[in-house]
């Protein structure tokens, strides 16, 4: 079995994620509706920002896009595949192969080193790392500027280093989509700029679709498209290019 990551990415400009009438209601006896009839489509290779006040529903929306959470009603289509009838295993495989996550709180495995964390999605799929994929992981580590600390345990790295490790990890499977929830949330402005530059580079080099939730005005202003969520509804959808 050739352990190579062969992808047939959606042609540039084709939609990679389509959300159709997404509603999310929490709770049993006392219900809270968090998302109202969200219709959204993201085109392949674009660099998108989602902004909005705290509690507006951004993370909820992103978790639904990433198939980690299920909408109360509505459908999600990822890379042309409807997700609502997929089994847990099919969703796991879909996430593994198509989506790279960068969470706000880094979420590395503290028992593993930076490079092992980067390799983890590949190991989940294939069990063992080939020489090629190790070389690729080292390349990604270099790309995010972590060459010196690549053998450090996740706990032995700074916040910014952990965040960059998470970016490299999100890239290892060469996913069609990267979902990032406040990836620079607790970084200083210089590091924020570095992380942004890295993501932008990757977007341009690999044509990876980025969807980034951010509070950071600078980042938001540099995206191709800004979507603002207000009280669970899209209040602004601005495409720059």
């Amino acid at each position: 079995m050739a352990k190579q990551i062969i992808k047939t990415p959606a042609a540039i400009g084709e939609p990679v994620i389509i959300l159709d009438k997404i509603n999310k209601i929490y709770g049993g006896s006392v219900t809270t509706q968090v998302l109202y009839d969200i219709d959204l489509a993201f085109k392949s290779g674009t660099f998108n920002g989602i902004i909005g006040q705290s509690g507006s529903g951004k993370s909820t929306l992103m978790n639904i896009m990433g198939t980690l959470d299920r909408p109360t009603t509505g459908t999600i289509t990822i890379n042309g595949r409807r997700t609502e009838n997929m089994t847990a295993n099919q969703l796991a495989d879909l996430r593994n192969e198509t989506i790279g996550f960068i969470f706000q709180f880094h979420y590395l495995l503290p028992e593993f080193t930076a490079i092992e964390n980067v390799l983890m999605p590949y190991l989940i799929k294939y069990g063992a790392a080939s020489r090629e994929i190790k070389a690729r992981a080292a390349e990604l580590i270099d790309l995010v500027g972590l060459t010196k600390v690549k053998n450090n345990l996740a706990t032995k790295m700074s916040g910014g280093q952990q965040q960059r490790t998470a970016i490299a990890r999100a890239l290892i499977m060469n996913p069609a989509i990267i979902l990032a929830d406040e990836p620079t949330g607790n970084l200083d402005s210089d590091t924020t700029e570095t992380v942004y530059q890295i993501m932008r580079d990757i977007n341009e080099r690999f044509k990876t679709t980025f969807i980034i939730i951010t509070h950071d005005r600078h980042i938001a202003e540099k995206t191709d498209r800004i979507i603002e969520i207000k009280d669970g509804r899209i209040s602004l959808d601005l495409a720059r290019r």
Partner: peptide, 16 residues
């Protein structure tokens, strides 16, 4: 549980 959650988000199957 945090690690298991991350692994599942990254696509590890329940059986694994």
């Amino acid at each position: 549980s945090k690690q298991i959650g991350i692994l599942k988000a990254m696509g590890i199957r329940s059986r694994q």
